[in-house]
Amino acid sequence: MRLKNKVALVTGAASERSIGWGIARELASDGAAIVINDIPARRNELEERVGQLNAMGANSVMAPSDLTEPAQVEQMIDACIRAFGRLDIVCSNAGMIRWESFLDIKPATLRALVDINVKGNMLVCKAAAEQMIKRGEGGRIVVTSSVQTYFHFPITPVYGATKHAMHIFVGSLALELAPYNITVNHIGPGWVQTQMNDTSPELQTEASIQSQKEAIPLRRAGTTEEMASAVAYFISKEAAYTTGAYLPIDGGLSISKYSY
């Protein structure tokens, strides 16, 4: 119970097959009180997840909100404080992907991806950091970026751009928040079989799924639990001196052009 008396917020955690849910379970199992977030339209799923966390013996509440709206982000942070009196850990994980090649990018896609993947993360980090600074006891922020932070794919140019933006953002934030003992790091998931990836055009047939596996040196997709383990490290006392770091968790996908 290394996280006893700690309070963690995890955004983008409604789906039972999401990295956010994996993180929420990991942190709850280590004793943290959990606030889980997703968009208001997924309130019912959030309720189910809260029920599951509480059944594990965790203390959890939900805070549905649209992270592209500053007022709703503030309300979410307020909800954390109302429920548990403090906020120690923020896993800014909510994000979305669209598969559109550069020449097919639609303005609506561009706006939506920037809104949630960039603006949403920034608003969450800002509101959370203000709360942590006010309390004066430091804090931990972990952003979920992507293996696409450094590795590029032809049909996800906007997604890749928003994730690379997070790399620069996390670095800047780490510098600015270091004097307050708040660390900021990000994880780069490779291929994880989440609900978000269900509509990936590269994962629609057994043959293409097999090809994806063979392109990964460890020859399989990652699990949400494995992503959560990296988050658990970044928020641990063992990682207290790590800030501004990027950790890919991709089975070696981004090492090279080819797997062996």
């Binding site: 590795f151 590029h152 794919f153 032809p154 090809s211 994806q212 063979e214 392109a215 996908l253 981004s254 052009k257 080819y258 797997s259 062996y260």
Partner: peptide, 15 residues
């Protein structure tokens, strides 16, 4: 552009 992205093909050099 070789180093920009991933290939699903087997490495042309198999070692």
């Amino acid at each position: 552009g070789f180093t920009l992205t991933k290939s699903l093909a087997q490495s042309p050099y198999r070692g």
